[in-house]
Amino acid sequence: MMPVRRDVHPHLPASRISDWHVRGRHVTHFVNALSIFFPAGERFFMDSVRAYRDDVADPELKRAIAGFIGQEAMHTREHILYNRLMSEAGLPAAQLDNTVARLLNLLRRILPRSWQLAHTIALEHYTAMLAGGLLADPDQMGGSEPGYHQVWIWHALEETEHKAVAYDVWNTVMKPGLYRYLLRTFTMLTTTATFWAMVFVFHVRLVMADRECRNKLRGFGGVMWFLWGKPGVLRRMIPEWFDYFRPGFHPWDHDNRVELERIGPLIAEIEETSRRAGVSLRAPSIRGSF
Rank of each mutant, 00 (worst) to 15 (best):
M1N: 07
Y126K: 06
W170C: 00
R23E: 08
T192F: 14
A66I: 11
R6H: 13
R218M: 12
I267Q: 01
R23Y: 13
G90T: 12
W152K: 04
L85S: 08
A122Y: 04
E60W: 09
Y148F: 15
R102N: 11
R236M: 03
T127R: 02
D210K: 04
D168E: 10
H75C: 02
L106Q: 10
L107E: 11
P231K: 00
T191W: 09
H119L: 15
R246E: 04
S15N: 12
F202W: 07
S144D: 05
F45M: 09
A197E: 08
L134Y: 00
T127N: 04
I263Q: 07
P112A: 11
V4H: 12
G248I: 06
E271F: 06
P138N: 07
R53Y: 08
R23L: 14
L227V: 06
V165W: 00
F226D: 00
F44S: 03
R205Q: 14
H21L: 06
R262K: 15
L217C: 07
A164I: 04
D7P: 01
H21T: 08
I65C: 03
L157K: 02
E271Y: 05
N83C: 13
M141E: 02
S289Y: 09
S144P: 03
R5E: 14
R84C: 03
P251K: 04
G177Q: 01
D58L: 06
